[in-house]
């Protein structure tokens, strides 16, 4: 069995391994690097439970070979919180009861994070379309949409804070 060397950045940390070329990225993350927050829910790239960011783009890590991802920057659910401070999406999923069994949740949060980077102010329909590559069997999606909207509000509020301050000055 031949192996190839892969080196990549995962959640800001450089990591490397010698792997079979057929190894799936999701198995590199889970079985080699021990980052078990990323889940596998299907064989056919339908469920999105394995969604991570590869060089800033959301990807289904069960449909990517580890060797393909060598040299890339990967972000997983384990890289979302800032120390003890939850990412606004994590907080929002908790606040809005956007999860039940929790199995689809990491993929759902990662896809939602990518969505909000592309579209900071989505409509509910845009949220639904944006997470249409992620299946949830528990929640009926209603509270996931609410969670994404809560996070969208928080993320844009924090970004636009200086602008708001300037507007206040202008008004006076």
């Amino acid at each position: 069995m031949t192996t190839q060397h892969v080196s990549l950045t995962v959640n800001g940390q450089p990591m490397e391994a010698d792997v079979e070329p057929r190894l799936l990225l999701v198995h590199l993350l889970r079985d080699v690097f021990g980052l078990t927050g990323t889940h596998v829910g299907c064989d056919t790239s339908n469920c999105g439970a394995c969604t991570v960011h590869v060089d800033g783009r959301s990807a289904k890590s069960c449909t990517v070979l580890a060797v393909q991802a060598s040299g890339s920057e990967i972000r997983t659910i384990e890289g979302m919180a800032d120390g003890a401070t939850l990412h606004p999406l994590q907080q929002a999923f908790w606040d809005q009861h956007g999860l039940q069994c929790g199995f689809c949740t990491p993929g759902m949060i990662m896809q939602s994070a990518w969505l909000l980077e592309q579209n900071p102010h989505p409509t509910d329909d845009e949220v639904r379309e944006g997470i249409s590559g992620n299946l949830c069997r528990c929640t009926g999606y209603v509270n996931i949409v609410k969670a994404v909207q809560q996070a969208a509000g928080q993320l844009s509020a924090s970004e636009s804070a200086p602008v708001a301050a300037a507007a206040t000055v202008d008004a006076s």
Binding site: S45, G48, T51, R57, S58, A59, K60, T63, V64, Q111, W114, L115, E129, G130, I131, S132, G133
Partner: peptide, 9 residues
């Protein structure tokens, strides 16, 4: 085509 992740890649 497909879903957002598929369209990303």
């Amino acid at each position: 085509i497909g879903d957002p992740q598929v369209r990303n890649w």
